[in-house]
């Protein structure tokens, strides 16, 4: 077994240290070492998006990032999306629009959606479909997911900016 390295990151706003082998992916570290199982393994080769997390603000497939590559990085996972006392508007929109069936792809979609709305606060249907094409869903046919994202954008834009 290769020697383990100590890696220091910030995950969901808290400084986090973990030990990992050089071959371990970020997804494996999150799920098996840190017990953050909200990121899902659907393919382990970057095709399905179920393991999407934000790394330094950008969405990445955590199955394609090595744990050791995240030294010094700021990571956000699905577990960090909701505020303490409720849900993020994106999460609420997914529920209200019935944008999930089995739910296995949902954390990945929500992370990608968070990144989309950070880049583009008023996306069109086409913008959404293009941006989310790296996240696969086999249950919904995407109709209600696209509606949920449009709804989330509308609600976020309607909210007064934080003081």
């Amino acid at each position: 077994m290769a020697k383990r390295r100590v890696v220091t990151t910030t995950i969901n706003g808290r400084q986090t240290e973990f030990l990992c082998e050089p071959r371990q992916t970020l997804l494996e570290v999150l799920r098996d070492t840190l017990d953050l199982t909200g990121a899902k393994e659907g393919c382990a080769n970057g095709n399905c998006g179920a393991c999407t997390v934000l790394m330094n603000g950008r969405p990445v497939d955590s199955c394609l990032v090595l744990g050791v590559e995240t030294e010094g990085a700021v990571l956000e996972t699905i577990e960090g999306v909701a505020p303490v006392d409720g849900l993020d508007p994106i999460q609420q929109a997914f529920l209200e629009n019935a944008a999930l069936q089995c739910g296995i792809c949902t954390p990945g979609f929500i992370m990608s959606c968070k990144s989309l709305l950070a880049e583009n606060s008023d996306p069109t249907e086409n913008d959404i479909r293009f941006y989310l094409a790296g996240n696969l869903c086999r249950c919904t046919g995407y109709d209600k997911i696209v509606r949920a994202v449009l709804d989330a954008a509308k609600k976020r834009n309607a909210e007064p900016a934080p003081a």
């Binding site: 909200g38 899902k40 954390p107």
Partner: peptide, 23 residues
């Protein structure tokens, strides 16, 4: 009617436990 599903919050927060999530 269209109530929010009972398992919804667990599934949008990553808290729902699927088979591979068990430890």
């Amino acid at each position: 009617t269209r109530p929010i599903r009972h398992d919804g919050v667990d599934k949008v927060t990553g808290r729902a436990k699927y088979g591979a999530d068990i430890h």
